[in-house]
Amino acid sequence: MAAAAAAGAGPEMVRGQVFDVGPRYTNLSYIGEGAYGMVCSAYDNVNKVRVAIKKISPFEHQTYCQRTLREIKILLRFRHENIIGINDIIRAPTIEQMKDVYIVQDLMETDLYKLLKTQHLSNDHICYFLYQILRGLKYIHSANVLHRDLKPSNLLLNTTCDLKICDFGLARVADPDHDHTGFLTEYVATRWYRAPEIMLNSKGYTKSIDIWSVGCILAEMLSNRPIFPGKHYLDQLNHILGILGSPSQEDLNCIINLKARNYLLSLPHKNKVPWNRLFPNADSKALDLLDKMLTFNPHKRIEVEQALAHPYLEQYYDPSDEPIAEAPFKFDMELDDLPKEKLKELIFEETARFQPGYRS
């Protein structure tokens, strides 16, 4: 834990890192770190609560700039109880001085990944967590956004079992017609939660990839272990087919990539493993919904509104309290091709509203 900075004593240090967030945020305490930044909790002297502050230093890398800009653009436009918001952003007053960006968010005690390492969940908890994931996802999908990296560590939890989806750095506007060349190379989302079509096709992607990830998360809540822990690309596919069985001819016809289709045709026939054999203690309604989410063919996979209306979630289902976005989200430009200098300018502009004396 960093010592509390005395008023006016300059930035606090946390594990050798400068955290320049005073005077409003003090009493910093280390939480963890990701690929390009550290997260601390801090005391907000204005709202009198502890908050989470993520320090991001992305400006050396085009990919990190892209992810940072995506996350900020999306989260500043989203407003939903099951999606983490941005409360404040701290950065230098000029673009030349801006080396880091500090993002202030609600402090959540833990995440689903940490929880599943230590606790076996009751059916009631599984049901409530799944409902909140789908409630947040309904809003995301209504904005025409794909999260693309749903996994237990991106689901934040607090002691009252509130759940918030975080990390929109890989999110995209849904565009089933656009052929994202190089899709697989830039697709760094965790393999275990990846839909089979991501490994088999490169053309376009749809909201059904997020539903697949939610199915993987439900299976993990039922058993405290990942359902498809593939060691590499082909191993991942083999794990999936080992449980779902061989795809039907109709399902194979959806695979545009001939090499991928021929690979699947070359494999020995596998039978589907019954879900109640894998999860003998699970609620039968939970397994019915799991089956509809972990469907090989993305066109037959359940959609988020149908999933919310499934009998497993009937005690929570309330369409009048499951809000959607006001308007579909649009990125003005494809960020993939922009140089990091341009992305830095866009991050600077996007964060201006939090600067003292800002006038829109």
Rank of each mutant, 00 (worst) to 15 (best):
L287Y: 09
P328G: 06
L265W: 01
E326Y: 03
D167Q: 02
E60W: 08
D337V: 13
I126R: 11
S223G: 12
S213I: 11
Y358I: 13
F19T: 12
K259G: 03
Q249N: 02
H180F: 12
I86F: 15
R70K: 08
H141G: 09
P298Q: 02
E12A: 11
Q355L: 15
I56K: 06
S284L: 12
I165T: 05
R261Y: 09
H232D: 02
A309E: 04
R91P: 01
R353D: 07
V51Y: 04
E250K: 10
Q105P: 04
L338W: 00
S223L: 14
P280D: 09
R91A: 03
N144E: 08
E71C: 02
H178E: 11
D321V: 15
S246Y: 00
Y205K: 13
A5M: 12
A9H: 04
P319V: 11
G22T: 08
Y193N: 15
W212Q: 11
P311M: 03
F354V: 12
F59Q: 09
L338T: 09
L134T: 09
N262Q: 09
Y317H: 06
K114E: 13
C127H: 03
I227C: 09
H147D: 10
K117R: 13
E96F: 06
S57W: 02
N253Y: 14
R191N: 07
Y358P: 09
K292N: 14
L28N: 02
A325D: 00
K117C: 13
L107R: 01
Y317M: 00
A52M: 15
P298I: 01
P226F: 02
D88L: 01
A189R: 10
G16V: 14
A92G: 00
P226K: 00
L241C: 06
A42N: 02
S29M: 08
A307W: 00
G169D: 12
T118K: 12
L121S: 12
Y36C: 12
A6D: 11
N257G: 10
G204D: 07
D167L: 00
I56M: 06
P11E: 14
P58Q: 03
D179Q: 10
L343V: 01
M13T: 11
F168K: 04
Y113Q: 09
G169R: 02
E197A: 10
P339D: 12
P311Y: 04
I72R: 08
K292D: 08
T63S: 14
Q236P: 00
Y43V: 07
L244K: 03
F19I: 15
G215I: 07
A286T: 13
M221S: 05
P226H: 15
G230I: 00
D318C: 02
E303R: 00
L343C: 03
I53W: 02
I302Y: 11
N123R: 09
P58N: 01
L234A: 11
Y263P: 03
N271L: 07
L116Q: 14
L218T: 12
R225F: 03
R353Y: 12
I198H: 04
L130E: 08
P280W: 11
S57Q: 03
